[in-house]
Write a protein that binds this DNA or RNA. Structure first.
Length: 522
RNA sequence: GGCGAAGUAGCUCAGCUGGUUAGAGCGGUGGAAUCAUAAUCCAUAGGUCGGGGGUUCAAGUCCCUCCUUCGCUACCA
């Protein structure tokens, strides 16, 4: 029985098309999910869209559409993005689904049964124009003493009936949980922020709204809809069956890790655990808040006009090139910077010049000098052993250790070091020269390289699944070898003896060029 | 204002609990090689580790202070 591993992305809020940040999160989560599958874990990977709330309603109205139609349309963009980027999610969930409504109402009833919900009034400065409450400190004084919101719209003191959740009750339990589970919130900087925040005291949370109705109806209070976050967070359990007693639910909850952006850490590390405690359900084992992608070091925003469409990038550079760049260049957990130049430089250096060329030169030599048959090994030299050991240790130990720690960029750094060692080995051994002086030795050298390249391709599968698979296909590596457990097993000789023959190798990692029209944002 | 993170070679960054000549990749320079995607390999470029002060036999690595950048500071997500 393999150990279950349940991982989720944040459930994206689709009041616009997906941007590079959504793509980044999906890609990173996918790489982790794929890695765990290759480690033999039984993986469940969930992503989806969080479609309720005021913003969706407003966006739809502004576009002159029915909210449901907008949700359908936008959610589809996210789903398509996942397909395009090779995201291997097991479930794509929508909070508008019937089952999800049922689950949200079920968790609501559990909170209620715990005595953690009470009806009260929410008071504050409300802007009708913005349909939002503002804190006193955010307001400015307009003409005639009229108080204005940050958007410059008039606000008025408003009282609204609302259900409240006794968040305050969970202050100590949460702090105890953070202390007892040091890995619950990662990276540490996010954990510190959360702990300080909770230590500062928790107020009860308003968890229903009556000012709009685009959401999950509160059981027994039909004029209330649930606070979007309560509903959205519930996706993590509704996706695998809750409240029904399904096999998936029993197997996969609690989640191994929620991968989220650093902006929504609080919702996942304070509200969500508190809701779960109240509901009597186990807490996820970890919440990881990744950083943001900056465009040339600047925040991306619609007003700056530097928002990047991930679909366009994938089309321009290739899905695997984009995936590789994001996971190699950005240290997971920290902010990262993106630019077309950076993608081109990184991908050309690592994938095209180093790894791609290594595979191409090796397979070409085998194709030309061995008629495509895998060369025989006739006794290894020390150099061969050293390379096999280095690549073997990298693939069996170093890379998995980094991936396991969600340090994909460091795993890829180890990967590149092994690639460098292979290229150095090729140059020192010079199989093209051995062809004339010692053909048998040439065969051993090429066989050694073949084994190393296959192992490196396997280690790259979580990051660049498409091209690594194509390479392994070209090389005839059996599917059951393509995982971290079997990559280092003795599969080469059986494959060679099976008379497998490689075809003329085809380059899988083309050199990229910076798009010519790349100019300054107008 | 309060709390926190960061400031290391031209660029992007590694440097855990303090300890030999501060590291990598990219770029630059000089060689080698020619199997390969004008790709590869080898060597190299001498950066006061933001400024100042302190602790220590010894400090990017601990303490203080100053400067700069950034994040969090609750109910739009």
């Amino acid at each position: 029985m393999s150990e279950p591993f349940y991982i989720t992305t944040a459930i994206a809020y689709p009041n616009g098309k997906p941007h590079i940040g959504h793509a980044y999160e999906a890609i990173a989560t996918d790489a982790i999910a794929r890695f765990q599958r290759l480690m033999g874990r039984d993986v469940c990977f969930v992503t989806g869209t969080d479609e309720h709330g005021l913003k969706m309603d407003q966006t739809a109205r502004a576009a002159g559409k029915a909210t449901r139609d907008l949700a359908d349309e936008m959610s589809l963009y996210f789903k398509q993005m996942c397909e395009t980027l090779d995201i291997s999610a097991d479930h794509f969930c929508r909070t508008t689904s019937e089952h999800h409504h049922k689950a949200s109402q079920a968790i609501w009833k559990r909170l209620e049964a715990s005595g953690d919900l009470y009806l009260d009034r929410y008071e504050g400065w409300y802007s009708v124009r913005d349909e939002a409450y503002y804190d006193e400190t955010e307001l400015t004084d307009g003409e005639g003493g009229q108080k204005l919101s940050p958007q410059g719209t008039p606000v008025a003191w408003t009282v609204e009936e609302s259900w409240f959740f006794r968040l305050s009750k969970y202050e100590q339990p949460l702090l105890e949980h953070y202390a007892a589970n040091s890995d619950f919130i990662r990276p540490d900087s996010r954990k510190n922020e959360t702990v300080k925040f909770v230590e500062g005291g928790l107020k009860d949370l308003s968890v229903s709204r009556t000012s709009f109705d685009w959401g999950v109806k509160v059981p027994g209070s039909e004029n209330h809809v649930m606070y979007v976050w309560l509903d959205a967070l519930t996706t993590y359990i509704s996706a695998i069956g809750f409240p029904d007693d399904t096999e998936e639910w029993r197997k996969f909850w609690p989640a191994s890790v929620h991968i989220i952006g650093k902006d929504i850490v609080r919702f996942h590390t304070v509200y969500w655990p508190a809701f779960l405690m109240s509901a009597g359900l186990p807490l996820p084992k970890q919440v990881f808040g990744h950083g943001f992608l900056l465009s040339r070091g600047e925040k991306m925003s619609k007003s700056l006009g530097n928002v990047v469409d991930p679909m366009q990038l994938a089309e321009l550079f290739g899905v695997d090139a984009l995936r590789y760049f994001l996971l190699r260049e950005v240290s997971f957990g920290q902010d990262g910077s993106y630019s077309p130049e950076a993608i081109v430089t990184r991908v050309n250096a690592d994938l095209a010049n180093s790894f791609g060329n290594l595979a191409q030169r090796t397979l070409s030599l085998i194709f030309k000098n061995c008629e495509g048959y895998l060369p025989a090994i006739r006794g290894h030299h020390d150099d061969d052993i050293a390379l096999l050991d280095l690549v073997g240790a990298t693939v069996a130990q170093h890379i998995p250790a980094h991936y396991e720690d969600l340090a994909m960029s460091q795993g890829l750094e180890s990967w590149m070091q092994a690639v460098f060692a292979c290229n150095a080995y090729v140059d020192v051994q010079a199989p093209w020269a051995l062809k004339k002086t010692d053909p048998e030795r040439m065969e051993t050298v090429l066989a050694t390289l073949f084994i190393c390249i296959a192992q490196l391709a396997i280690a790259a599968l979580p990051i660049i699944p498409g091209s690594a698979t194509k390479l392994l296909d070209q090389m005839g590596v059996p599917v059951d070898v393509r995982n971290f457990k079997n990559a280092g097993s003795h599969w080469y000789s059986p494959l060679a003896e099976s008379n497998f023959q490689i075809a003329q190798p085809v380059g899988l990692f083309p050199r990229l060029e910076v798009p010519a029209e790349e100019g300054t944002a107008a």
